[in-house]
Computed example of a mutant assay.
Amino acid sequence: MYEPIRAKSVHSMADQAQYPHRSREEELDIQLAGHLAALLAVTDELGLEAPAEAIAAQVSRLRGAPPARHAALTHADADALHRRALALAGRALVVAASRADTAAAILSAERMDAHTAAMKSRDLVGAP
């Protein structure tokens, strides 16, 4: 009733040895380094030297090379920068927790606390 398949399926998987593959840990390292590098850029723009150096050290550890840092400022509002930094630190914390990286998780949590405190203090200063 049906004609047998005579050609190799186009949907079959290619030889796995031909393509490089990364482990889950390597993928998480790349994600974490990316989130921390973005946090570093915002931290540099806020002018926070000590936290920026701590973040740069973590990025260096994960990537095996120091991060590229730039002096291009967006002149964004400080509140917007703190909100962005808080979001980036939260993302970094999630990835650090999933890969069980205690140092990066602690750093991310500290940055979240610092940016939350900065946003709260700015709200209190502006309140009548």
Rank of each mutant, 00 (worst) to 15 (best):
7 A>L: 13
50 A>L: 10
83 R>M: 12
53 E>V: 05
60 S>A: 15
76 A>K: 04
42 V>P: 04
18 Q>L: 09
77 D>Y: 02
54 A>N: 10
122 R>P: 08
66 P>R: 06
95 V>K: 14
103 A>S: 15
82 H>P: 03
127 A>T: 09
52 A>C: 02
126 G>R: 14
80 A>Q: 13
15 D>N: 11
111 R>F: 05
70 H>G: 13
71 A>T: 12
87 A>S: 10
56 A>K: 01
112 M>T: 09
13 M>I: 01
110 E>Y: 04
66 P>Q: 07
112 M>N: 08
57 A>M: 02
25 E>F: 06
123 D>R: 14
121 S>H: 06
70 H>M: 09
97 A>R: 13
80 A>F: 04
1 M>C: 08
46 L>M: 05
113 D>R: 08
24 R>H: 12
128 P>L: 11
76 A>F: 00
68 A>W: 06
70 H>R: 09
39 L>S: 04
64 G>C: 01
4 P>R: 03
46 L>T: 01
71 A>W: 05
106 I>Q: 15
54 A>F: 04
93 L>C: 10
55 I>Y: 07
45 E>R: 03
70 H>L: 11
36 L>P: 00
86 L>H: 14
37 A>H: 15
21 H>W: 09
87 A>C: 06
100 A>M: 14
87 A>G: 04
92 A>G: 10
99 R>S: 09
110 E>M: 04
67 P>A: 00
85 A>S: 08
48 L>P: 09
12 S>P: 02
36 L>V: 03
103 A>P: 13
34 G>H: 06
